[in-house]
Amino acid sequence: MQGGNFYDGFRQGIIVAAFNHLQHEGNGTEDVVAEAEASSDGGGDPKGPKQKVLSETAKVGGALADVVENVAEKGTDGTLKAGELPVNWGKVSKIASKGGNLLGVVSVVDAAFDLYDKPSWGGLGKVIYETAGFIAIKNPYVLGAKVFVDITGISDWTFSKF
């Protein structure tokens, strides 16, 4: 850590402190998990609300550990590259590009309404921009960039200047 970035050290400290706090709170994680397992085996829920919450946390932790294990396993046998999420990205991008086209219809019509409402050259530019986006954009990254520009109002601001 010596000579390192202050922010890195600060972040590391927060993470370690948070884990430490969670581990030493109440009975300790191992005891809580053991107790939760015992109670589920023996029938009935854990007694106190705090124990209930902790047992739920342990279950969520277990599920997360399964996901991590799954990713690591897939990573080692080559089905998933290192750092990749266990999400079918191909399917997501497929739906995004087509869903974006459906919403593109609405965007074009809305731009046409703006032009009818307040006729201007900027309005005409917006209609052409939306139509071009509707016709040509199928790449989900480009679509994401367009949505960002539209949501933040950058495109509206730009076209309102004309």
């Binding site: 087509k98 086209n101 459906l102 593109g104 219809v105 074009v108 139509t131 509707f134």
Partner: peptide, 12 residues
Amino acid sequence: FNLIVGRNPLIL
């Protein structure tokens, strides 16, 4: 889904 997308330009 592709055919729905295909009908969009005609709708416009």
